[in-house]
């Protein structure tokens, strides 16, 4: 596999993806491929994407995130998003964007709790 866009952490059966870089269109598409490969290679049952460092999530980024979740779902894997900044949440809601196939969690701990219960 090519170089990783985001260094990930394997935690229990989950893949933790802390996004700490500016997400441009190209990065987010490469991240999608990276996540799918890691699910396949590492026997992952759940993905936790942490976006607490992301200042702007626009329609395309949220679309790719939802799309990734849909693909992960097809591979038997749930996707939880945590750490959305309040102003980003407001912006997404005002634009009318729904994060299809994604569960949102209040924190990393909450995300793990949610995935545990889903199993």
């Amino acid at each position: 596999m090519k170089s990783k866009v985001v260094p990930t952490i394997k935690l229990y059966d989950y893949l933790l993806v802390p996004i700490q870089i500016e997400l441009d269109d190209n990065t987010v598409e490469r991240l999608q491929m990276q996540i799918l490969h890691e699910i396949h290679e590492n026997d992952v049952r759940g993905i936790i994407i942490d976006v607490s460092m992301v200042d702007v999530i626009d329609s395309y980024i949220s679309f790719v995130l939802s799309e990734t979740a849909g693909m992960a779902k097809a591979m038997g894997c749930h996707t939880v998003l945590c750490g959305i900044q309040p102003q980003v949440a407001l912006t997404l809601a005002q634009m009318g964007i729904r994060l299809k196939d994604i569960i949102t969690a209040r924190s990393l701990e909450d995300a793990i709790d949610i995935l545990d219960e889903l199993d």
């Binding site: 912006t91 005002q94 009318g96």
Partner: peptide, 20 residues
């Protein structure tokens, strides 16, 4: 554009901008 994100359409971008 409607309240969806499931398409890569131009519509959502513009409709979203208008709401913001």
């Amino acid at each position: 554009g409607g309240y969806t994100t499931s398409e890569r359409s131009l519509g959502l971008g513009l409709a979203g901008i208008r709401r913001l």
